[in-house]
Design a protein around this nucleic acid. Structure first.
Length: 735
DNA sequence: GGGTCCCCGTTTTTT
DNA sequence: ACGGGGACCC
């Protein structure tokens, strides 16, 4: 970018505000940058890296830069490379997990692992733990493997190895056998040469603690350490960072205590609150100049978050207009709420014509996943393109996990879980009893599941059908493995999935008319094979999917309204944001209150703060009087967070729920509570009555339109998306 | 090994 | 209400 690196005031610094510049130029010692929403956090981080490199303070490979998500690290890499116009691939830039994995592979033998250890995903973890609990005869009803797994995960997040599990804490869990279960789980993982995600950080921290020479090596590597989203770090990540920072002492953490919303998965807000105590002589810099939102939106956010006790405290300033007030709307129920949001989106593009409002600049941010349904239905009826961001990720889909399991068995035959997953997929007549026998044999001989299978086929120790089928499968795997020597690896995968009968299994599903999903699954598999072709080798590919694989198809970005959870929205911004469901019990969520008390309430409030600060120009907050929860109607009261919003920045929109004259469709809703209600308000409009030419109306299928002609109870309507139709008045509602 | 019935859980989610 | 998973039976 700048042409003269020797220049004392490089161009990139001139483009920062004083606080940002200070955060970039304070290169030495511990520094905490408290970066409020929209204050240019990423710009500071990337500029800081560029500064360090361009001032020759360090080579790229002497910088460690840690993020939480692959997306964040990818973006940072791109931006730094763009700023410097030079190769920065030598930088240690990645997620906590990928960097720990990289370090662990170099020193695996010191911890009793092999260099090519595999990384278990959440599903495999639970399956393994479940098996262990069965072996140990733990009552699965009382102590579900899922719950036990999250307890173990919690211990790992704190850096606690099994031998450090405090018996006073563990005493009441699983009949006092938590430490035993945990220890067995760790032993089994090591036996499989596997680690789970929590292990990556914990083992790496242990490596540093137990091998001072290794730690010294990394001290000599890392002159500068940068950490993004510091408020999201957990205890073991903090310990890991502290060990590394003992080297140069140059650690820069960027974060926002007000956006800490992940305590439930181990994030420790205390890390950021305590920074000054943890790192002596720390510099603290607050970034409070917001470049994103209008003053009304910022004031609303500031007023709300000020109600929290546990915070470092900062106030965002806008340099822009006051903007529109935050609009609050009260509605009858969730469907009405969806209707309201859709209507607002449509009117933005119809009534206001001066400015083009891109659909991708609208976002609906919900507290819980089930809320998306009402919006999807409404957008579908109105033909408003939308996408639900962050649904099932690509690699979590059954067919992708199956295909990956095949590849794992091919490459890592000792991966017991992978073989177990696909041994009878498609159905080969190798059922529960055969699998149990194979496991028993494996355990007795102390050999992997795969070797046990080879042995039992040879010994003719299984039922004939199972033996023949298993023999064929194992023979096939041998053949596919040999094929790798002279056939392109993606091609081998394709052949394997075909010859194993896996592809045929889904094709059969397509035939059976269960096809809607099956066809998609086949397409996903094609996509996977294509993606595999882009990797150097299958080893590379497996490492990638363990650590990084994301939903590639999310790239098909078009002009669509975004629907997502508040959590998924962190870090994003939109012109217009809708925050529905601000009702007690839903937001703040009852479970957060029940499980975490005041702390839980404060985290919910931070979540509200995150939601509000996503909006650049327009913010709509809504709440409904009635909501269906587990298919039961509940009346709800407005969220306490609404009262936290400063009155001056808020406008209450007129509500047709006022005391008198409920609108036509609300009339039939007069009975509250549990009674089943009309699915749609179709029949609630009096026939042949009350319509007039030019009136805007709504139809369940065709959406919004205007009345062209009327005769009797027939209406000719010009629909916005579906053209002219003639319909009976009974099927049309007023809007 | 596969079909059927019952019971549980149903906030947020990255790696 | 509803889906997934386990128990139970053939």
């Amino acid at each position: 970018m700048q042409h003269n690196l020797a220049n004392n005031i490089p161009e990139y610094l001139a483009r920062l505000n004083p606080e940002q510049a200070e955060a970039v130029e304070t290169t030495d010692g511990p520094i905490l940058v408290l970066a409020g929403a929209g204050t240019g956090k990423t710009r500071v981080l990337t500029t800081r890296i560029a500064h360090i490199i361009s001032q020759n303070l360090a080579y790229p490979n002497q910088i460690l830069s840690v993020t939480f998500t692959n997306k964040a690290s990818r973006e940072m890499k791109e931006r730094v490379a763009g700023m410097l116009q030079r190769d920065v691939s030598g930088m240690w830039l990645g997620t906590f997990h990928s960097i720990c994995a990289k370090i662990l592979r170099r020193h695996a033998e010191l911890l009793g692992f092999e260099q090519n250890f595999t990384i278990l995903d959440a599903d495999d973890q639970i399956r393994l733990l479940k098996k262990i609990m069965q072996d140990l005869k733990i009552d699965e009803k009382k102590w579900s493997p899922k719950v036990m797994m999250s307890i173990i995960q919690g211990l790992k997040d704190k850096g606690k190895k099994p031998e450090k599990v405090d018996s006073s804490y563990a005493g009441h869990i699983a009949e006092g056998r938590l430490a035993e279960i945990y220890a067995t789980y760790q032993k089994r993982l090591k036996g499989m040469n596997s680690m789970d995600f929590g292990d990556l950080i914990m083992h790496c921290t242990n490596l540093f603690e137990e091998h001072s020479d290794v730690l010294a090596l990394y001290h000599s590597y890392f002159k500068y350490i940068l950490v993004d989203e510091y408020q999201d770090t957990n205890v073991v990540q903090y310990l890991w960072l502290r060990l590394l920072a003992q080297g140069s002492g140059n650690i820069c953490c960027v974060g926002d205590d007000d956006q800490s919303i992940y305590s439930w998965r181990g994030a420790e807000i205390d890390n950021i609150l305590r920074f000054e105590k943890d790192f002596a002589n720390a510099t603290i810099i607050k970034l409070e100049q917001n470049y994103r939102s209008t003053q009304n939106i910022l004031s609303a956010a500031s007023g709300l978050i000020a109600k929290n006790q546990g915070r470092l405290g900062k106030t965002l300033h806008s340099q822009g207009d006051k903007g529109n007030p935050v609009k609050v709307k009260f509605l009858w129920d969730g469907d009405e709420e969806a209707k309201f949001v859709a209507q607002e989106i449509e009117s933005f593009n119809q009534i206001i014509t001066a400015e083009k409002h891109k659909l991708s600049e609208f976002a609906v941010l919900v507290r819980a996943g089930f809320q998306t349904r009402a919006f999807e239905e409404r957008f579908l009826t109105l033909n408003i393109p939308y996408k639900v961001v962050g649904g099932l990720r690509f690699y979590e889909r059954a067919e992708i996990r199956d295909a990956c399991a095949y590849i794992r068995v091919l490459m890592q035959p000792s991966n017991d879980l992978a073989l177990e997953r696909i041994i009878n997929v498609p159905k080969r007549g190798i059922g529960k009893s055969s699998i149990e026998a194979l496991y028993r044999n494996a355990r007795e001989q102390g050999i992997p599941f795969y070797d046990s299978a080879v042995q039992m086929v040879q010994n003719k120790a299984l039922a004939t059908k199972a033996r023949n089928e298993l023999g064929e499968l194992l023979g096939n795997f041998d053949r596919w493995r040999r094929m790798l020597n002279d056939v392109e690896h993606a091609e081998v995968v394709s052949l394997m999935l075909n010859q194993s009968g896996y592809i045929q299994m889904w094709k059969d599903e397509v035939q059976k008319e269960k096809s809607i999903e099956a066809q998609g699954r086949l397409e996903n598999i094609d996509e996977l094979v294509r993606a595999i072709g882009e990797f150097e080798s299958l080893e590379d590919f497996l490492e990638h999917i363990s650590l990084v694989m994301e939903n590639e198809e999310a790239n098909l970005s078009g002009e669509m309204v975004n629907i997502m959870t508040l959590h998924a929205a962190k870090g994003l911004e939109f012109d217009t944001v809708f925050l529905p469901g601000w009702e007690e019990g839903l937001f703040p969520h009852q479970r957060a209150l029940d499980e975490s008390g005041d702390g839980g309430l404060e985290e919910e409030r931070r979540l509200a703060y995150v939601g509000i600060t996503r909006a650049r120009k327009n913010l709509f907050i809504s709440h409904a009087a009635n909501r269906r929860v587990y298919n039961q109607w509940q009346t709800s009261i407005p969220s306490r967070f609404l009262k936290d919003l400063p009155e001056d920045n808020v406008e209450n929109m007129p509500s047709n729920l006022s005391i008198h004259s409920p609108s036509a469709q609300n009339a039939s809703y007069s009975s509250y509570g549990t009674e089943s209600r009309e699915k749609s308000p179709l029949s609630q409009v009096p026939a042949g009555n009350g319509f007039s030419i030019g009136e805007r109306v709504f139809h369940q299928k065709f959406g919004y339109g205007f009345i062209n002609k009327m005769s009797g109870d027939n209406l000719e309507i010009n629909f916005q998306h579906s053209g002219k139709k003639t319909l009976k008045t009974a099927y049309v509602e007023k809007v």
